[in-house]
């Protein structure tokens, strides 16, 4: 994986200008990155795409996206509606498989898997690459069963009660639901349901957490709770976040990718994208001239 990294460098002419030290995927030239942070196996990108294109029938939803997402950081993917950001995100754990006529070309590596390789088992991949959806979608079962189910079907051998409590604590939901663990999750508020979905995803101890506009169905207070949570989650997990909301991307992410019309226009440190973007289209979008 390390040897591939050079090819995904998107900022090779500006690596010196990046203010944040902890963005190894962007400044991947060995010389530059070894100055900034010690390049170890731990910092190797967890998701790398190589000229990845995703088609629905004849329509190219994502065209030749090449990027490398570093571990334990929050990477935001922004762009106007229909730019392909959700499609790209859903490719990472193969949730696009359920769309008839979906085709993929190019390379996509996620952790140790060639995601669309013939030997890759999507079921195994999804245990390690969790996902939170746009609309909270808890199972119509109790809070406890929601969190425990994924672990149970994957043959979790530890103590389920303890796992449920730990996951709910990590999702900052434990105090609100500890007295009604066995009541229906559908009685929870929208924001609580979404945190339950996050708890359910992290109960599987994934390496990567994909979030597809996780706050777009929530009110501002619930949104700020989820954002705080995302900030806390990056200590253990690599978070990739698709968002419509540029302020949200600016608030919570370390890296930001801007997509437009299926193309990855720019991928850089969030600071750079929002203060001195390299590309004209990025600047137009950031300043609200379109989108």
């Amino acid at each position: 994986m390390m040897t591939d990294v050079q090819e995904y460098d998107l900022s090779n002419d500006r690596s010196g200008t990046i203010a944040r030290p902890a963005i190894p995927a962007v400044q991947v030239r060995p010389a530059a990155s070894s100055d900034a942070v010690p390049q170890s196996a731990d910092d190797a990108p967890v998701i790398t795409t190589d000229a990845l294109s995703i088609y629905y029938g004849k329509f190219a939803a994502v065209q030749e996206a090449t990027m490398a997402i570093p571990p334990r950081q929050v990477t935001a993917i922004i762009g106007p509606s229909g730019c392909g950001k959700s499609t790209l995100l859903r490719a990472f754990n193969r949730m696009n498989d359920f769309i008839p006529g979906m085709r993929v070309t190019g390379g996509l590596r996620c952790l140790d898997w060639e995601v669309y390789g013939s030997k890759t088992d999507a079921v195994e991949l999804r245990r390690r690459v969790g996902m939170v959806f746009q609309k909270p979608n808890p199972f119509p079962k109790s809070t406890y069963k929601n969190v425990a189910w994924g672990a149970r079907v994957n043959g979790y051998r530890g103590d389920l009660d303890e796992l449920v409590e730990r996951s709910l604590r990590q999702a900052a939901l434990w105090d609100e639901v500890k007295d009604k663990l066995h009541a229906s999750s559908l009685a929870l508020s929208g924001g609580q349901q979404q945190r339950l979905c996050i708890a359910r995803a992290i109960a599987l101890q994934p390496d990567i957490l994909l979030m597809d506009e996780p706050c777009s169905a929530l009110d501002p207070i619930a949104t700020s709770k989820i954002e705080d949570l995302i900030d806390a989650l990056k200590e253990r997990y690599t978070v990739v976040l698709v968002t419509h909301n540029m302020q949200q991307a600016a608030r919570v992410s370390d890296l930001t990718a801007f997509m437009y019309m299926g193309r990855l226009i720019e991928f850089d440190a969030t600071n750079t994208i929002f203060t001195s973007p390299h590309n004209r289209q990025t600047q137009d979008y950031i300043t609200g001239r379109f989108g």
């Binding site: 949730m95 359920f98 079921v123 959806f133 199972f139 119509p140 359910r200």
Partner: peptide, 26 residues
């Protein structure tokens, strides 16, 4: 709803587990 199926698949469930645990009871 497909959201239930997707939620279960995203947790690393097999098709059989998705159907048996969620789709069929619903």
């Amino acid at each position: 709803p497909d959201s239930i199926r997707h939620a279960a698949y995203a947790l690393g469930a097999t098709r059989w587990q998705v159907i048996w645990h969620h789709v069929l009871p619903a």
